[in-house]
Amino acid sequence: MPPARTSLFAAPPAHPSQSGRRRMVTALALAPLAACQAPRPPLRVGSIVFPGYEFLFLARELELLDPRELRPIEMSSSVDVLRALAVGQLEAAQLTLDETVSARAEGLALSLLAVLDVSAGADVVMARPAIRRPEDLRGRRIGVEQGATGAVLLGAMLHAHGLRVDEVIKVPVSLNSSADVFEREHLDAVVTAEPWATQLAERGAHRLYDSRATPGLIVDVLAMRPDVLQQRPDSTRTLVAALFRARELHQRAPAVTAPLMAPRLQVRPAEVAKVFDGLELPNVTRNHELLKPGGVVQQGAERLQTFMVEQRLLRRAAPLADLIDTRFLPAA
């Protein structure tokens, strides 16, 4: 497991042994990113550990982010990220689309700036060998992170197979503890994602249901408070550019970037490529297509909100007309 931060506001630890690797990859960059122009608190971006979110931290390792201007903050669960956003301890976050929609429904204004990934099998329900069909979960114990993507995926699976939520026993787990809790609590199934799904498969669990059955339902995004967009447009533009720059550098030099990503993803460098299986990683051009007015993401958010209200995952719906803000995307 990656070490926990000692403080929400602590500076990220240095990795002296990787300084040469950083210099090597940074040299691939086409131009330096804009530096902070005046002393001010850094813009804090919250995130859990997840492959689709890793390019933010890779950007930090490659020194594409000025820590005086932008600071990634690793947190243990998406619920913690949303709480920190709500109380002003974060200005932005890497979240799923359903988490962003949920936050808006609860009165936390967030704008969607970029699509980080689209799940096509990366989010999964893993089960013990005796559980062969979703219907076998009736009356069984299922680990799931409440108020997050896991609850949405579980709800979709149960709905598709004629089960009600009250016909299963939900056990709260965080995503990064899902594999350990599955074993420790002797759960019958757990909603998880990579790299924990691979860890569970190595222990004998099997894939019962995944996001391939729900295309477009699970999308990861970069979201920010609208007041911060107005106050920090330059920092926001730098953040979005750094994410796409880090992704590009990883595609160009994976042998160099994989060792930087492996420790946080809890895998060996040679296994980094595998953790991205089941994820579509849209580039800038694809982002413009996905985020156009009335496009895939806008329609998906509206369908998702309707589904979540029907499944009682949301108490009420919220207007979504102003959800997406593409002003900070690099040119296609």
Rank of each mutant, 00 (worst) to 15 (best):
residue 10 A to Q: 14
residue 16 P to T: 10
residue 18 Q to R: 15
residue 21 R to M: 08
residue 30 L to H: 13
residue 34 A to L: 09
residue 35 A to N: 13
residue 47 S to W: 04
residue 56 L to N: 11
residue 60 R to L: 13
residue 69 E to W: 08
residue 72 P to D: 08
residue 74 E to N: 14
residue 83 R to K: 10
residue 84 A to T: 03
residue 90 L to D: 10
residue 90 L to V: 03
residue 91 E to D: 14
residue 92 A to S: 12
residue 104 R to Y: 06
residue 116 L to M: 12
residue 116 L to P: 07
residue 125 V to S: 12
residue 128 R to L: 13
residue 133 R to D: 11
residue 133 R to H: 14
residue 133 R to A: 08
residue 135 E to T: 11
residue 136 D to M: 09
residue 145 E to S: 15
residue 153 L to M: 11
residue 166 D to K: 03
residue 170 K to W: 00
residue 178 S to V: 11
residue 178 S to G: 08
residue 183 E to F: 02
residue 187 L to Y: 10
residue 190 V to N: 03
residue 190 V to P: 02
residue 194 E to F: 01
residue 204 G to K: 00
residue 205 A to C: 08
residue 205 A to Y: 01
residue 206 H to T: 03
residue 208 L to K: 05
residue 210 D to A: 05
residue 210 D to N: 13
residue 213 A to L: 12
residue 217 L to M: 13
residue 225 R to C: 14
residue 225 R to F: 14
residue 238 T to K: 04
residue 241 A to R: 15
residue 241 A to C: 09
residue 246 A to N: 02
residue 260 L to P: 12
residue 263 P to V: 10
residue 267 V to T: 14
residue 300 G to V: 05
residue 305 Q to K: 09
residue 309 V to L: 12
residue 310 E to R: 15
residue 315 R to P: 00
residue 321 A to H: 15
residue 323 L to R: 05
